[in-house]
Simulated assay, not measured.
Amino acid sequence: MDTAPDRLIFRDAAETDVPALVALIESAYRGETSRTGWTTEADILDGRRTDPDGVLAVIRAPAGRLMVVERDGEPVACCQLERRGHAAYFGMFAVSPALQGAGIGKRIIAEAERRVHADWGADEMHMTVISVRGDLIAWYERRGYRRTGRMYPFPYGDERFGIPLRDDLQFELLVKPLPAASPGAGTE
């Protein structure tokens, strides 16, 4: 494992990571702290993005993993990877707002793609994004994801997903063929 100070370390989450990961995910998407970065959902959703039980469920899922990304010994990002037949699902992606825009997100998604292809033989990566998040969808499109037009309803009334501030929220499926990861995306 490389521990150079400016290097990113990728590892699977442990149950002891739950409090730090909940705080990280919340900081990237909800509340005033999230406005420091560009991935905030504070203008479309209030409430929580996740909770300890939700993060723990992802860690314990037999068909997946929660990948933690550390920098200088601290978790600075995470993402969920779940095996779904020939494809893998990418979710719960969060980068510390203070580090957004510095290229870390690109490295993480490339490493996630590399891992699901190498470890599981996945030939596609799937994700769902709230369809009104045009800036975020455009970011994924620049990474090779394509919009499918396939929509899923937002779970209005289930506060585990947040409290909607709009009545037009839905999820769109984005898909990318693999392998497309760049070499040297991460360090283990």
Rank of each mutant, 00 (worst) to 15 (best):
M125R: 00
R48V: 09
A61H: 14
A88I: 01
P153D: 07
E70I: 01
G47Q: 03
G103P: 13
P177Y: 04
P62R: 14
D167H: 14
L45Y: 02
L24C: 00
R7H: 15
E82H: 12
R48C: 06
R84S: 04
V68K: 04
I9E: 14
T33Y: 09
V76Q: 00
D2G: 12
S34N: 10
H86G: 11
A4S: 15
E141P: 11
A181T: 10
G64Q: 01
I109S: 09
R48A: 13
L178K: 13
W38G: 11
E124A: 08
V76N: 09
T3M: 12
G162C: 03
G186A: 03
L178R: 14
V22F: 00
A77F: 01
D51H: 08
P155Q: 04
D119C: 12
K106M: 05
P164Y: 00
E26M: 06
I59D: 06
D6P: 15
V68E: 02
M127V: 10
R166A: 04
A102F: 06
V55C: 05
E124M: 07
A28M: 08
I44Q: 05
I104Y: 02
R146F: 03
A20D: 07
S96R: 04
T187K: 12
L8D: 07
M1I: 04
I163F: 03
A4I: 04
D53H: 09
A14M: 14
G149C: 04
M151E: 15
G105K: 06
Y145M: 14
I9F: 14
A87H: 07
E70T: 01
A185P: 02
D51F: 00
E41P: 10
F161W: 14
E141F: 04
E70P: 04
R143P: 04
W120M: 10
F154N: 06
L178W: 09
P155K: 07
A20T: 00
L45Q: 05
I137P: 15
E159R: 08
L173S: 15
L66M: 11
G54K: 10
R166W: 11
G85V: 00
I109R: 11
D123R: 13
R35P: 15
A88G: 06
Y89I: 00
D17I: 00
C79Y: 07
F171C: 12
I9R: 15
L99V: 00
D119V: 08
T36E: 13
F90D: 05
A180I: 10
E188C: 07
E41M: 11
W139T: 09
P177L: 08
R60G: 10
F154C: 05
A138Q: 15
F161Q: 12
V22C: 02
G91L: 08
R166H: 12
E74D: 02
R160P: 14
F10W: 09
I9C: 14
L165G: 15
T39N: 12
